[in-house]
Amino acid sequence: MKNNVAIKVKNVGMRFNLSQDRVDNLKEYMIRFLKRDLHFNEFWALREINFEVKKGERLGVLGLNGSGKSTLLKIVSGVLKPTTGYVQTKGKLAPLLELGAGFSQEYTGRENIYLYGAVLGYSKEFLDEKFDEIVDFSELGEFIDVPIKNYSSGMKSRLGFSIATVVEPEILILDEVLSVGDKKFRRKSEKKIMDMFDKGVTVLFVSHSLEQVQRICDRAIILDGGHLVAKGPVDKVARIYKNMTE
């Protein structure tokens, strides 16, 4: 991979099995196997996707619902493994997709900072050091020692956001708007992300809102039915997208 490339997506395809009646017990499997009735309803969510994101570039991924945007993000962040092709990333990656996946409901906010931090691959020393910063940013105050099953959903996502953004990532993966918490917190979180932008972080931003992508990104690609139909500077791609959606 060339030195100035942060994300490289090569020939990526993703196939799902959409069988209506999923066979998940042995008896069924044997019967169907003997009857040769094991049909797999294949569905390609992505086909032959190729693109590169250079360091410091902010790439928008446009597409309608079901075009494969989220699948692409999951592949880049490593949750899904592509059926064909591969993805390479260089640098510390922070996917701000599902904030708080890995929270334990029984755990207090304090315990969850260490648990979720570990899920994101942070070391204990790092978390010890950043603990106060996380609590401050999340504005949870004394609630930090309450089990999070008693939190409101806003509190949970505030905590998730604070933990996930405490690192200084080199690659940031964002899905739609970051609608975290109330208006005040949203402004704060947007500011934090903008600060990262200023520091030259590479961004992969997924949205179906053209306005947002134009505001944030300098380049863009369009996905349609799992195919990459356009890529280039954001203004050019925006025109194509406008024509597509109208």
Binding site: S104, E106, Y107, E111, Y114, L115, G117, A118, V119, G121, Y122, S123, K124
Partner: peptide, 20 residues
């Protein structure tokens, strides 16, 4: 080694929550 800390945290969680 990167996920050693996670292994430690998960073990701790399992034991802690078992009798909470």
């Amino acid at each position: 080694t990167k996920y050693n800390n996670l292994l430690y945290e998960l073990v701790k969680k399992n034991i802690k929550l078992k009798y909470r």
